[in-house]
Design a protein around this nucleic acid. Structure first.
Lengths: 123, 123
DNA sequence: ATTATTGTATTAAGCACTTAATACAATAAT
DNA sequence: ATTATTGTATTAAGTGCTTAATACAATAAT
């Protein structure tokens, strides 16, 4: 999964989101080591400072921790990850429902449109 | 519905979205006149230039049109609105599903979580 | 005709984000 | 001990967003 960075939002915020996703989905496994700031920055075609900023935030949230020179690691605490994963999911659902209702769709419509989309994606 | 503007994204982009929503949901009815740029800007606590920028974009998309001095109006073309409404809905659904899958949820889970949330909101 | 209101354009300043270049601090590897 | 790699910090410059102040253009209302 490559890095997807759009210009309509601060890059550091997008980096936070995408790294969060990779941790919650297990792509970055608990306890595993991340590439170095410099490597991650190169990978994402981003300035190291920008990547550092994103990582610092995730560290603040407890998803990552860093040791002085051996690198930066995903937390081993499964519970922290689980909590974040569910928090993000709840937010996604609520935001989605809010937007759809603002657009003027009813619960039934939302559900049926979603089901339709799920069927289509299967194929 | 008041104006909700967060600091994590360009204001003009948020204005575009929210006005789009109001048009698609009929809060701003087809053919109806919008408040003036200055009034809208005051209403949203935003600089007139910023509001102007958002309106210009919506005009470009065909949702609005302006006459020199009698103001700015929502298009009378129901079809244009319908198209935009559905395009936005499709985007919402796809983005939502993408994020949820990246988080590691299966179709079944997504559907059941959504249903649960819909039940809760009812109350 | 005059006035007020509309959309529109311009210029300048402040701010946050981003990049760039560089340096320092700590320690694992040698 | 030395070296390389790690995270971290600093300073400066460029860019885009936002605000502010102002002016102009067109026309509906009077």
């Amino acid at each position: 999964m490559p890095w997807e960075l759009k210009a309509d939002r601060p890059i550091y915020a997008q980096l936070i989101e995408q790294i969060e996703l990779k941790i919650c989905s297990g792509i970055y496994a608990p306890g595993s080591r991340l590439p170095s700031v410099r490597d991650l920055a190169r990978e994402a075609s981003v300035n190291p400072n920008t990547m550092q900023r994103a990582l610092a935030k995730l560290e603040e949230d407890g998803l990552l921790y860093s040791t002085r020179t051996s690198g930066r690691f995903v937390t081993e605490d499964d519970n922290v990850i689980y909590q974040v994963k569910n928090k993000l999911a709840q937010e996604q659902i609520q935001d989605f429902l809010k937007k759809m209702k603002q657009l003027g769709f009813e619960n039934k419509e939302i559900l049926s449109m979603l089901k339709t989309m799920l069927e289509e994606v299967k194929r």
